[in-house]
Design a protein around this nucleic acid. Structure first.
Lengths: 169, 169
DNA sequence: ATGTGCATGTAACTGGTTACATGATTCG
DNA sequence: CGAATCATGTAACCAGTTACATGCACAT
């Protein structure tokens, strides 16, 4: 993809992972080139300015794999979605491990929220209770989603062929 | 509260809003003092190091109100939770407005996710589809939560007295 | 005694944003 | 014909983290 393309994809997930500026994206791409993790190919087009199409190298794939596999101690939503987005590069087993890891983290997080909710006595700060309640709702929704996906993945580890109209995912 | 107290509260919501380091928290507190938005009171304690208890000033309250009221163009989860956490400082009507604003933003966001989901054809990138699906699930959960809260707030704008065992929020 | 939690701070570094700069194309 | 979108980049600035520095209290 080109830098612009990457920006567009990231933008579509802006709610989850934010939307990096070109001022950080292009330098990052240049750094990848410098480190041999990616290559560029300048594609001239009719009546259009040429685009710079970046491709990942073997070294890049290796580094990516390493990044994906390193355990995320912090339960950062952003990092999780980024990894999810790159799930292709994971083996099916790796994906399951990733989801399970996330599940454990969210469950732990929910426990701390519930703990905080319990210690916060009735009369207290409405705002804090609202925020806590919100967090719990989101955590529960995420756990439900993770369980659904994990269930689906364990039942049919690799959907051999696409059945028209099934829309699994 | 003291800087340490603030850190603890923020930490309990780390999943939602992250957990700022002391290296940013203390300087921020000093800046508030400098700008007259807060005051400190040093409270010496028996057998313990003194704590610096910060209090908001009228000017600070004003600035906070301004911050809360300014429309959040970016649907940042972090900013939303922060505002939620400070809902006390809002009038009940302000809180409702805030929730409604958020509802509109999340709905818009869900629409863009659905759009992206539709354009992403079947065979495409599993990772991207997973991330999109995840985003949709979270968005739907949040919308449901917002609707529930908005419903509750419109029915009893201000619960006059606490009824034991009700646990509304 | 040693480590963990309380409690406060500073300085170097880093990663990111904002603003700037350029230029072609497409749409109303 | 001007505005928006495509498309790429650089430089100044800023907000935050990491690492460092200090010291007391409490539990194992």
């Amino acid at each position: 993809m080109s830098g612009y393309d990457i920006k567009r994809v990231l933008k579509s997930l802006a709610w989850l992972i934010g939307d990096p500026s070109f001022g950080s994206l292009y330098p990052a791409l240049h750094a990848l080139l410098r480190d041999g993790l990616a290559t560029v190919e300048v594609r001239p087009r009719q009546d259009k300015p040429p685009r710079k199409v970046y491709s990942i190298t073997d070294a890049g794939r290796e580094a990516l794999q390493e990044w994906i596999n390193q355990p995320t101690s912090n339960a950062s939503l952003k990092a999780f979605v980024m990894r999810l987005n790159l799930a292709d590069s994971l083996s099916p087993a790796g994906l399951v491990a990733h989801l399970k890891q996330r599940r454990a983290q969210v469950a732990a997080h929910r426990a701390t929220l519930e703990q905080a909710d319990r210690t916060l006595n009735e009369g207290d700060d409405l705002g804090q209770r609202l925020a806590l309640n919100y967090g719990l709702a989101l955590a529960n929704a995420e756990l439900a989603w993770l369980d659904r996906k994990l269930d689906g993945l364990s039942q049919q580890p690799r959907p051999a062929k696409h059945v028209p109209g099934s829309r699994t995912i």
